[in-house]
Computed example of a mutant assay.
Amino acid sequence: MCGRFLSVSDPELLAERFEVDEVRTEPLPPRWNVAPSLDVYAVIEREDTRRLGTLRWGFVPHWTKRLRGARTPINARLESVATTSMFATSFAKRRCLVPADGFYEWQVREDGSKQPYHLHAPDGAPLALGGVWTVWRDPAEEADEPVFSTAIVTTVASGALADIHERVPLIVPRQLWSDWLTATPEEAPHLEEAVRALAPPTLVAEPISTRVNDVRNEGPELLEPATDG
């Protein structure tokens, strides 16, 4: 799954890396412990224009009556995102890339405790996590601003990553960025096959301090190496 990640790159760097045409957001504060319900950077392509903006992490279905207490899933499974009622329309028409400077997974030890790992690209470059997005408008408040939200797509872990956790966020390789962002509803069902046909990305997995377990903790010290005992 993907329940926490890092977002420390500024919009200018992300705009260059993801070759966006427009930046439609003010800079977010650097975060080493991005948690659900926060705004996150996202890349969307509409009408041949690639844009960097922000989305709320936690997918708000259009049928939601009120936001408070609503079910807002943070992840969508690659195996079912195209068919489940929650995500099917968004997967067909509204996909995005969520830039992340790494993400966290927790490995369950033999004694039942959990060891957090920081997973990131070997060169430290931002990863492109596959996502789906949607728009929700409060039916009780016609004048309210709409809520734009996202869920990060996850897939089955493979290789050494499977020893840490059974699922990981879907990392969309650069050669599929355009397809992920622009595929038509007729083409979208083939995206899963296209992603699986490519070798999974190489990631570095580093055991880190358990400070990251608490969403209230922030800062680069969360990446300090784990210590025995």
Rank of each mutant, 00 (worst) to 15 (best):
M1L: 09
L13R: 15
L14K: 00
A15M: 10
D21R: 05
E26K: 08
P27V: 09
P27D: 12
S37W: 13
Y41F: 01
A42P: 13
A42E: 10
A42N: 03
D48Y: 07
T54W: 04
L55K: 13
R56V: 09
F59T: 03
F59R: 14
F59P: 08
H62M: 14
T64K: 06
K65C: 00
L67R: 15
R71S: 14
I74F: 01
I74C: 00
N75I: 09
A76M: 05
S80K: 13
V81N: 01
M86V: 05
F91K: 10
K93Y: 07
V98T: 04
V98D: 10
Y104W: 06
E105N: 08
P116H: 04
Y117Q: 04
Y117A: 10
P122D: 10
D123C: 08
A125W: 03
A125K: 14
P126T: 10
A128F: 00
L129W: 02
G131R: 13
W136H: 10
D138W: 04
S149R: 02
A151H: 01
T154C: 02
A157E: 04
A160P: 10
A160F: 11
L170W: 00
L170G: 03
V172F: 06
R174G: 00
L176W: 04
P185V: 07
E193T: 12
A194R: 15
V195P: 05
V195C: 08
A197G: 10
A199E: 05
T202V: 13
A205S: 14
S209W: 09
G219V: 02
E221G: 15
L222C: 11
T227W: 07
D228M: 07
G229C: 12
